[in-house]
């Protein structure tokens, strides 16, 4: 198991190669020794191969999200589990686009990614996964996940810290006996708060466990222009430019949904 001092962790790049580059530069500047990506490289944004080559060039330690599993194995859908016809319509568009524009080599790379990773951060045993330790596409939202459920996961998976993503909104909850759960958020799209920046998490444990959520500003107007020229839906572009989610809203719980505009 690799030992780390200070790590940068993010998820959900969703083809946002500009935010990915900005986050990696920021993390290096802040002294992170390793960068981890918790999966979902594709969807939503433009030019999937650009994101994957940046991840590979910078030797980002990746795990496989539901999207990566789908693209890697050329499955019929992204396994997000939408039932709302409007959400499904948009999910199909971004999936077809990402699948068509991911090279064969990169699909193979996505297919072989591990579903989980364990590292040691100071005295903490850190377990990294995409949705939850037990299920790649399980949503762990702040407002629908009890504290004792998270403690149960830590016990079951012999972890002091569990890191996940998949929902698109970051949160942190300290648990009993100094254990921690962190949803590290996503780099791919803003988190439905009317701001255009995205987020990653910086974790350290020199003495006690510390998590800092770092906002990442990037050239979102340039990304929007690229999305337009790739004929991606105007609804996706609107999210990048406004910071409000316009699609995939059905999976949001009441509290998270209420904070958004749509």
């Amino acid at each position: 198991m690799s030992e780390c001092r200070k790590i940068a962790v993010f998820g959900g790049v969703y083809n946002n190669h500009l935010a990915l580059t900005a986050a990696l530069e920021d993390a290096r500047r802040r002294g992170a020794d390793t960068a981890f990506c918790l999966g979902d490289m594709g969807a939503f944004g433009p030019h999937p191969d650009r994101t994957i080559s940046i991840l590979r060039e910078h030797d980002v330690q990746c795990i496989q999200g539901n999207y990566d599993n789908s693209i890697g194995n050329e499955l019929p859908d992204c396994q997000c589990g939408y039932t709302d016809p409007r959400d499904n319509h948009f999910a199909r568009i971004s999936y077809a686009y990402t699948l068509a524009n991911t090279s064969l080599t990169n699909r193979e790379w996505l297919r072989q990614l591990p579903a989980q990773r364990r590292v040691r951060l100071g005295k903490y045993r850190v377990f990294m996964c995409h949705g939850s330790p037990r299920r790649t596409n399980e949503f762990l939202w702040e407002s629908t996940t009890s504290t004792h459920f998270l403690e149960h996961l830590c016990r079951n998976y012999d972890a002091d810290v569990i890191l996940a993503t998949h929902t698109g909104i970051k949160w942190h909850r300290p648990l009993a006996d100094g254990r921690q759960f962190v949803n590290v958020g996503v780099l791919g799209r803003p988190e439905n708060d009317g701001r255009t920046n995205v987020w990653y998490a910086l974790l350290s444990a020199e003495s006690d466990f510390q998590v800092e959520f770092v906002p990442v500003a990037y050239d979102h107007e340039r990304l929007a222009a690229q999305m337009r020229s790739e004929n991606l839906p105007g609804e996706f572009v609107a999210t990048i430019l406004s910071g409000w989610w316009t699609t995939c809203l059905e999976v949001l719980p009441a509290k998270e949904r209420r904070r958004g505009r749509y």
Partner: peptide, 10 residues
């Protein structure tokens, strides 16, 4: 279950 809690095998 609620839509927010649905997940299936991958």
């Amino acid at each position: 279950s609620n839509p927010t809690s649905q997940s299936h095998d991958v």
